[in-house]
């Protein structure tokens, strides 16, 4: 009977004014700190990057929309301490570019503290680059005797399958033999789409019927890659929302299967649509925990997308962006170069 009072009074507390709901914040904070330690130390054996279209003019052209958002910052003149109005402009621009409230506030604090000794755009460039200093090495080789696997994860509609197709082309250009694993057995016609890419890029592919176990598809692909002497396996997975335990568990399982001998998952890419807003952070957090994401492929960065979310993710979660898609053609998937990226936004 008496315990009842406790409940009653708490209900009274609620009804009588005191709604203190703090459930999410703590959980998320724990999650972030827990996941940070999950990133595995992977032996860097070889770096795959080649000079390509990744020059500043191309970036500037492709990022014209993001560039125009930053126009107002580029137009700010003056050195030294920033005025209230100038800070407001910078704030607006950062928020409009999807950098998010907390990262924006950090950058603003930094600007306020350091001032702008050589112009505001240049101070902002320094601040942005400081957030983008993660290790961006792209791994293509596994331990001796193991088959290197790149696993692709992400939510629906971000362009995973297309990204795999483009990367298959890139590997082929660099002289690697590619095995594709059509692990998206859920979406209607996903494996059909990957098949088209296989044909186009001259890659091998392992497919299974709709509803088949994606883990077994990946497993088969690794086996066949070993048998046929393919140099790398690119494994597709079904798009999944990042807040479903079941779907994330399934992803963990796929990763475990792929990482079992003779396979070795050397990169797990989260494919992210550059138009995504702050939800990208929670996506990244969940996928990091479920599948040890080692890098992000940011798609659809051209057009009107802002890409500021890159800064937020690298700053808050320390997951490097490794590739960016700035167009629809195969060559438009570039190795991400933060300096180019920031310069193309802020260079006068």
């Amino acid at each position: 009977m008496i315990v009842l009072i406790v409940v009653l009074i708490l209900v009274a507390l609620v009804a009588g004014d005191v709604l203190l709901i703090r459930r999410l914040r703590r959980r998320r904070r724990e999650f972030a700190s827990r996941t940070r330690s999950l990133v595995p130390e992977v032996l860097v054996t070889k770096v795959a990057s080649r000079p390509d279209l990744n020059d500043i003019e191309t970036m500037e052209r492709r990022l014209s929309a993001s560039r125009s958002v930053f126009e107002r910052v580029r137009a700010l003149s003056g050195v030294g301490t920033l005025s209230r109005e100038q800070l407001d402009v910078v704030e607006e621009v950062l928020l409009r570019s999807d950098i998010g409230v907390s990262t924006t506030n950090e950058i603003l604090a930094l600007l306020q503290e350091n001032g702008a000794p050589s112009g505001i755009a240049s101070a902002l460039r320094v601040a942005l680059l400081a957030s983008l200093n993660t290790d961006r090495t792209i791994r293509t080789e596994a331990s001796p005797g193991r088959v290197p696997v790149w696993l692709f994860v992400g939510v629906n509609g971000v362009g995973k399958t297309t990204t795999i197709g483009k990367l298959a082309q890139r590997h082929a250009n660099e002289g690697r033999r590619v095995m594709l694993a059509a692990g998206d057995t859920f979406r209607a016609a996903a494996s059909e789409q990957l098949q088209q890419w296989a044909t186009r890029t001259g890659s091998d592919i392992v497919r299974a019927g709709e509803g088949a176990d994606p883990g077994s598809v990946v497993h088969d692909a690794i086996g066949r890659a070993l048998a046929r002497g393919a140099d790398i396996v690119l494994a597709d997975t079904a798009g999944r929302r990042a807040n479903s335990t079941n779907l994330l568990d399934e992803l963990s399982k796929i990763r475990r299967v792929a990482d079992r001998e003779p396979g070795e998952v050397i990169e797990t890419f989260m494919v992210l649509d550059a138009t995504t807003g702050q939800n990208a952070l929670s996506q990244a957090r969940e996928f990091l925990a479920a599948a040890n994401v080692t890098g992000i492929v940011l798609t659809k960065l051209d057009g009107t997308a802002r890409g500021g979310i890159v800064v937020a993710i690298e700053r808050e979660l320390a997951i490097p962006v490794k590739y960016v898609g700035v167009g629809e053609s195969v060559d438009d998937l570039l190795v991400f170069d933060p300096r180019n990226f920031v310069d193309s936004l802020l260079d006068a």
């Binding site: 999807d98 649509d273 138009t275």
Partner: peptide
Amino acid sequence: DAVTGQDAVHTAKA
């Protein structure tokens, strides 16, 4: 798409 960021406005407008 409900997860779209600041870009939603431009898309809708266009």
